[in-house]
Amino acid sequence: MYTRLNRAQPYALGLFRIVVGLLFACHGAASLFGVLGGAMGGGSIPAGTWPGWYAALIQLVGGTLIVLGLGTRIAAFVASGSMAYAYFKVHQPEALFPLQNGGEPSAVFCWVFLLLVFTGPGSLALDLLFARRSVEPGEDRAREQAPAVAA
């Protein structure tokens, strides 16, 4: 049974990445363009406003890259850092625990994206497509994946 689950792991991770990235991108689109309920239920954030506009831009661009699986680890690292900043600068000064300070989404997104930094994109990612193309035709993939031996 576990063998079947292990074979499905890259696909589950890929779907996880897509869903979380889409949710994150939707937050950015709502803040930047006033769609999906807009910033805090009303319009959009004025361009260049610190830190809200920049956070929304990171959410939209980073979330889109994560959905596509393009530069996933880097995009997830930046997204995780932005959510850590949001938690510690905006929410944590209000109260210690996320449940008390309204910082649950920031905390969860921060840890989810940090996990993606270490796990990678899973399957269904453009990163994998580009990685396959970088291997020369006829080149031995096993040799490429084998650890280098010092001479």
Score class of each variant (00 low, 15 high):
Val20Asp: 03
Gly41Ser: 09
Val135Glu: 12
Arg133Met: 00
Gly103Pro: 07
Cys26Ile: 15
Phe77Ile: 04
Leu115Asp: 06
Ala29Gln: 04
Trp53Thr: 02
Tyr54Pro: 02
Pro51Cys: 05
Ala47Arg: 08
Phe130Met: 06
Gly48Met: 11
Gly14Cys: 07
Phe118His: 07
Gly43His: 03
Phe113Ala: 06
Ala86Trp: 13
Phe77Leu: 09
Leu124Gln: 06
Val78Gly: 00
Ala142Asp: 10
Ala29Ile: 11
Ala95Gly: 06
Arg141Gln: 09
Gly69Cys: 00
Leu5Pro: 07
Gly34Val: 01
Leu60His: 14
Gly43Phe: 12
Arg141Leu: 09
Phe113Asn: 05
Leu114Ile: 04
Gln145His: 11
Gly102Trp: 01
Ala47Lys: 08
Val108Trp: 02
Phe24Asn: 09
Thr64Gln: 01
Arg73Cys: 06
Pro137Gly: 12
Glu136Lys: 14
Val19Ile: 12
Leu114Gly: 04
Arg73Phe: 06
Ala131Lys: 11
Glu104Lys: 04
Thr72Ala: 02
Ala76Gln: 05
Leu23Arg: 03
Gly21Thr: 12
Met40Val: 11
Gln100Ala: 11
Ala29Asn: 02
Gln92Leu: 05
Gly34Ile: 02
Val108Lys: 05
Ile45Lys: 12
Ala151Tyr: 06
Ala146Ser: 15
Gly43Arg: 10
Pro137Lys: 15
Pro10Val: 15
Gly138Glu: 13
Leu65Ala: 00
Gly122Val: 12
Gly52Ser: 05
Ala150Val: 02
Val112Ser: 11
Thr64His: 01
Ser44Lys: 15
Leu114Val: 05
Val112Phe: 07
Thr119Ala: 13
Trp111Arg: 01
Leu23His: 02
Leu15Phe: 11
Arg132His: 09
Gly52Tyr: 04
Glu136Leu: 14
Pro93His: 00
Gly102Glu: 00
Ala75Gln: 03
Arg17Phe: 08
Cys110Lys: 01
Ala12Phe: 14
Gln9Ile: 14
Pro98Tyr: 09
Gly69Met: 00
Glu104Gly: 06
Ala148Ile: 14
Ala56Ile: 12
Phe77Trp: 08
Gln9Tyr: 13
Asn6Gly: 09
Ala131Glu: 10
Ser123Ile: 10
Tyr11Thr: 10
Arg133Asp: 00
His91Lys: 08
Gly34Pro: 02
Phe33Gly: 04
Gly21Cys: 06
Gly103Asn: 05
Gly34His: 02
Ala151His: 13
Gly69Thr: 00
Gly63Asn: 03
Gly52Asn: 08
Gln92Pro: 04
Thr72Tyr: 01
Val135Arg: 13
Ser80Tyr: 03
Tyr87Asn: 03
Ala95Glu: 08
Phe130Arg: 04
Leu5His: 03
Val78His: 00
Arg133Tyr: 00
Phe97Glu: 15
Leu13Glu: 14
Leu5Arg: 01
Pro46Asn: 14
Phe97Ile: 12
Arg141Lys: 13
Phe88His: 10
Leu13Lys: 07
Gln9Leu: 14
Thr64Asp: 01
Pro137His: 15
Leu70Arg: 03
Gln145Arg: 11
Arg141Asn: 05
Gln59His: 09
Asn101Met: 07
Leu126Asp: 13
Gly42Thr: 11
Ala76Val: 03
Val35Ser: 08
Ala39Cys: 12
Gln100Asn: 12
